[in-house]
Design a protein around this nucleic acid. Structure first.
Lengths: 142, 142
DNA sequence: ATTGTTGTAACTACAATCGTTACATCTGAT
DNA sequence: ATCAGATGTAACGATTGTAGTTACAACAAT
């Protein structure tokens, strides 16, 4: 199963917030039109990014802005913020292995650390990419 | 979103096939009782593992067995076999970014390679773990 | 007070997972 | 050749998560 598009949408939102911060007021409608999704989806994600401390959102005729230096916001921060997966549960383990079977009884003990290694490898890579990288690459394009 | 339990079930199945290959005939009912899921689920996975060339399954009063040396079957092989995700699509990208927006127009160009790096990191780790590792760890436990 | 915007509830549509029943099909053994 | 024991597979149904939409209350700046 795929990782929710909430993640790529959130990255897109943060990119817009950075690129357009000088020239436009960043509203959910503005973001929605760049990303081409419903503004309510954007607002939910704005809330989650705000709760994670990555952005600040003002109500009323407000606008949103990034709350930290770009190189301190990693993809992992965003991934966690929009909770694509709970902590340590990238893999869905089948629920009730048979405890009377030697394999069923020990499958968790044998498998858990290996699954965690995989998840850690992925999260390490997510943590190595920051919004500063995104900005640099956008500047090359624009 | 989590990676389907099909993956952990498949690893469990292969573990059973190895551990019990001397003493039991490996049927879908046998596997189902160790894993505690419906035998039909097991049969679908048996088919997928067979199609991937990882096991052989005999019809009739048959039984299944692993088709290759254990250290030549990686977690990545199993992951691919039970198609948890299509090739290169671990992340679900939002469909229609606005091409009239400089960010929307370039988001794919800027983001795709980074997402691929993350996916590759994960798959590299999956590829580094084999059924031989599972067997070794089970032997320590039993 | 008005206006523009966020925050959020409620609902629908859709897809995937997981589980189950049922039965056709095949194969090895007798 | 038959039969028993399996696999292979179709057809459901329940549940969950995603994604989209409408509607409206709450709030803040002007």
């Amino acid at each position: 199963m795929q990782i929710s598009s909430r993640f790529t949408i959130a990255i897109h939102m943060l990119s817009c917030m950075e690129v357009f911060k000088e020239d436009y007021k960043i509203t959910s409608d503005f973001l929605a039109s760049s990303i081409n999704v419903n503004p309510v989806i954007i607002r939910k994600l704005l809330s989650q990014l705000k709760d994670a401390g990555l952005i600040e959102v003002k109500r009323g005729p407000g606008g949103a802005q990034i709350a930290k230096p770009l190189d301190e916001i990693t993809f992992l921060d965003v991934y966690r913020a929009v909770d694509c997966v709970e902590e340590n549960t990238l893999f869905h383990f089948h629920e009730n292995p048979n405890q009377n079977c030697p394999v069923g009884k020990n499958i968790h003990a044998v498998l858990d650390d290996k699954l965690l290694r995989v998840q850690n490898a992925m999260e390490r890579e997510l943590a190595s990419i920051t919004l500063a990288d995104m900005k640099a690459d956008f500047e090359k394009k624009l």
